[in-house]
Amino acid sequence: MSTTTDAIAERGPPGPIVNHDADLARKRPEVGSARVRAPTRRGGQLLLHAAFIAVCVATLFPMLWMLRTAFAPSQDVFRATLSLWPDNATLGNFAAAFRLHPVGTWFMNSVVVAGAITLGKLAVSLPAAFAFGVLSFRGRDAAFALVVGTMTVPYVITLLPTYVAVAGIGLYDTLSGVIVPTIGHCGFVVFFLRQAFKALPRELFEAARIDGAGPWRQMVEIALPNIWGAVAAMAVLSFLGAWNLYLWPHLILDASEHKTLSIGLKLFATTGEQGGEWGPLMATALLAALPVVVLYLVAQRQLVSAFATSGIR
């Protein structure tokens, strides 16, 4: 268990995963039976690819259909069709969406909420992870258990008192009311970053200590540059989680112009006459999906390692 997390945490930015795959590929031909079984294998591989292509297309289809509808001119939206791209693609649905609802404001609110939660979680978690992983002090293990133990607490059980407290100090219907309590749920970030700090060789810090570097300098100048991969993974994971928050902002944000995209979508989907503004709604859904999909494609390796570790913890 811990060896796995260590191994993942140790993977720096450049692509050792690719090298690992290449190693495996190189080893394969050494196995004697491979050549004899090559023909059936090729047939099997072909079948495997066919099956995966079918499954992938089915998986991506709802997203492709959203894309199609978002760019379809209104008379084309309701046409019973199987074609994945509309004739005369248009941006009209985006303009219509911005007319119907404060979609631009929702987008900015989502950016602010996700950005602030990400920065806040990192600001709280990095020093704590450094303390738990590198420094030694009395009460460290108890404090670590207290922080990382929050991972096992379902957030449902914190919902009501936090809501009352946020309303009590006048943060109801504000972005701060969404942001501040969410930063407190950083147990996994602390856990993950501590693994990364722990994996660094002790001698690194000994040398710095002899040079008279205090713990802050040790963290910022020596430890941090060596764990950027892990920090990036946690930044991406936190941003994604915060961008996708639903129930909490749904409870806290009330006025339409204070909403984030995730909860604005619900408002959008449930207002307006029956028959619906499907084109503009899909355009808005696309705006809500686009940042996370782009982030996923750009930072896939960090994200996969973070998600996979969350499963091995």
Binding site: T59, L60, N244, S262, I263, L265, K266, A288, V293, Y296
Partner: peptide
Amino acid sequence: APSVLSFPV
């Protein structure tokens, strides 16, 4: 890919 979307989306 669908797993990076939010439940409401």
